[in-house]
């Protein structure tokens, strides 16, 4: 095992470029540690430890957006009054991730980089139309989060790119909702989850653990834009079946995920939307 220890962001980008895609960036290391004892292959790799890069540790609220540096931990957003008042779903989702120990080490960028279909942080970010800024020796580029993921654990980030930050546009929201269903009340991996927002830019409905990656539910969003009549959870299923593709796995079943997702969305909106039924 080899660990690269850059002192600056520039150095980190250079090291990553020089490793020719071999080095894996790690921030809090919480995803790596889970399977460390049995994942012998992981012991042979090189790691780029960016946890000491203070340049990536910031939360900035500008006129039109919130910009959060890659090394910002979940705990730092949980304890940020600014974030809590304007983007409550970030705090809600962060509180649902692992334990306090994990929240104090785990980072938002790590949640994005890991590209898990069960990522709770990504769920909230996508509902807020976040975009990701990648940096490398070639410069930076910005990708909307809903286009960032390509497949299961696969994203647009190239091996020589680091996540620098993510950016959320400031809007006035008339609705926000987050719910995670795990197999127990705390420290659990999501079986099905949903985040919903409504603003001047329209509805955003995002679901996790129901597709190879965290998914925007465009068909459901359209139903909401059209103010379609929805009298029961089952009325959402036709749209959801186009948006998501849940599977049976060790944590849950496709039938459960599909059924519960429709119910979460239905009941989340029932009180809020007078046109609903």
């Amino acid at each position: 095992m080899q660990v690269l220890l850059p002192q600056t962001l520039d150095e980190a980008c250079t090291m990553l470029a020089e490793s020719q895609g071999r080095a894996v960036p790690i921030a809090g290391g919480t995803d790596l540690i889970v399977h460390w004892p049995c994942n012998i292959e992981a012991h042979q790799k090189a790691y780029l430890d960016i946890s000491t890069l203070d340049e990536l540790k910031f939360i900035t609220l500008s006129g039109d957006s919130l910009i959060v540096g890659a090394m910002t931990t979940f705990w730092e957003t949980i304890t940020s009054k600014q974030v809590e008042s304007e983007f409550p779903l970030l705090v809600q989702s962060a509180k649902e991730i692992g334990s306090v120990q994990i929240q104090t080490r785990g980072t938002w960028a790590g949640n994005i980089a890991n590209a898990s279909p069960a990522a709770d942080g990504v769920l909230a970010l996508m509902a807020y139309d976040a975009s990701v800024t990648l940096i490398s020796t070639h410069g930076t580029r910005e990708i909307p989060l809903h286009e960032y993921f390509l497949d299961y654990k696969c994203s647009q980030r190239q091996p020589d790119e680091l996540i620098h930050s993510f950016c959320i546009p400031r809007r006035s929201f008339t609705f926000d909702y987050f719910e995670k269903v795990g197999s127990r009340q705390a420290q659990t991996i999501t079986k099905v989850g949903v985040a919903i927002t409504n603003s001047s830019s329209g509805w955003r409905v995002v679901a996790n653990s129901v597709a190879p990656m965290v998914r925007r539910c465009y068909q459901v969003e359209q139903l909401l834009e059209k103010k379609a009549r929805i009298q029961q959870p089952d009325d959402l299923l036709a749209a959801l079946d186009q948006d998501v593709s849940p599977i049976d796995d060790i944590r849950s079943t496709a039938a459960y995920r599909r059924c519960v997702l429709s119910r979460l969305i239905y009941y989340a909106l029932r009180e809020h939307c007078p046109w609903y039924s």
Binding site: V34, C38, S183, R184, Q185, A186, T188, I189, I250, R251
Partner: peptide
């Protein structure tokens, strides 16, 4: 316990879920 060929597949504490304090 999720079984396959008489062997537990979820032999780790992420996938074999025991109660936490809130449970």
């Amino acid at each position: 316990c999720h079984w396959n060929n008489g062997s537990m597949q979820n032999n780790n504490l992420s996938d074999y879920v025991i109660p936490t304090c809130p449970d």
